[in-house]
């Protein structure tokens, strides 16, 4: 045993002390559901009676006999690939616009821009979104001005998912707020110094702003990706996965398997497959982040 220096011993104690809430919480509330769901993925479990061990059957069935699993995976990938970058870019631009000025009026506008994220899962959104993209909806009315024939956006398997992607982009409030907080944390002195050195807006943006907020960009990227893969509400309340499974999000399929078809075992297998997949993407992003994320404090986890 290596003898600990006083500082290291102190760090050890303080480290566990500071993180103790999480450690307790993890042991008390998370580890049991985590392990249970992994266990259930090897069972047949209809929730009403006890689970029965069936080995790898759920996993085999998933990859070989379940076309809807592939439909769900495809739809979810398509959604994530477009939604995450679009939403982040949009959120960043809006945050940038808002961080430029300071006024009472802007407070009001910020609140308005945040409203879409606040009414996220309500019935009203379902009704309004269908109305906007409906056959005689607003979008088609606008198109007809330019002589373009209307499209049944939500009824067409090629376009339905785009309405959900746009809905997600429209609800850009959360990443926007996080970016805004990050932009406001960038020390003003840096900008002042750069302005004196003759840097223009773009120079300041790429030399100071973006590098300074890269830790938060990383956070938003990872978080949005995970959320994208687990997206549920939009598909659940607006399209119910249709038409022809073209908007069947993975989480919706999983939920239906668990609570409509009462195949919790299978749903758990689905969950762990997604977890593994998202885990791999997360690791990849973390690995590359060493190249592009700039930490004031050098030590990464």
């Amino acid at each position: 045993m290596k003898k600990l220096t006083k500082k290291r011993k102190h760090d050890l104690i303080m480290g566990y002390l500071f993180t103790s809430p999480w450690i307790i919480g993890f042991l008390a509330f998370i580890i049991f559901p985590l392990i249970t769901s992994l266990f259930l993925s090897f069972t047949r479990y209809d929730i009403l009676s006890s689970p029965r061990w069936i080995g790898f059957q759920n996993w085999i069935r998933m990859f070989t006999q379940d076309p809807r699993f592939w439909n769900a995976t495809k739809a979810t990938f398509k959604y994530v690939i477009f939604e995450v970058p679009l939403r982040l870019i949009f959120a960043f631009i809006v945050a940038l616009i808002f961080s430029q000025r300071e006024s009472k009026v802007l407070n009001f506008y910020r609140a308005i821009y945040y409203i879409p994220s606040l009414i996220g899962g309500s019935v009203a959104i379902a009704v309004v979104w269908r109305q906007i993209w409906g056959y005689d909806g607003i979008i088609n009315a606008l198109l007809s001005i330019f002589g373009i024939k209307g499209i049944n956006w939500l009824g067409d398997t090629r376009t339905a998912i785009w309405t959900l992607i746009l809905l997600a982009v429209w609800q850009f409030g959360s990443p926007m707020l996080i970016f805004l907080a990050a932009l406001k944390q960038v020390p003003q002195e840096l900008y002042e110094a750069a302005t004196i050195d003759g840097a223009n807006f773009w120079g300041r943006l790429f030399k100071i702003t973006i590098p300074m907020v890269t830790p938060v960009i990383l956070f938003n990227l990872i978080n949005q990706m995970i959320h994208g893969f687990m997206a549920f509400t939009q598909s659940y309340i607006i399209t119910q996965g249709g038409p022809l499974d073209s908007t069947l999000f993975y989480a919706v399929y999983m939920y239906r398997k668990a609570f409509n078809d009462f195949e919790m075992g299978y749903a758990s297998a689905l969950a762990w497959f997604m977890l593994a997949l998202v885990g791999i993407f997360t690791i990849i992003i973390f690995k590359t982040s060493k190249r592009w994320v700039y930490y004031e404090a050098e030590e990464g986890v």
Partner: peptide, 10 residues
């Protein structure tokens, strides 16, 4: 038509 119905959701 079914696509009109599905576009309207449940």
């Amino acid at each position: 038509s079914r696509d009109v119905e599905l576009a309207r959701g449940s």
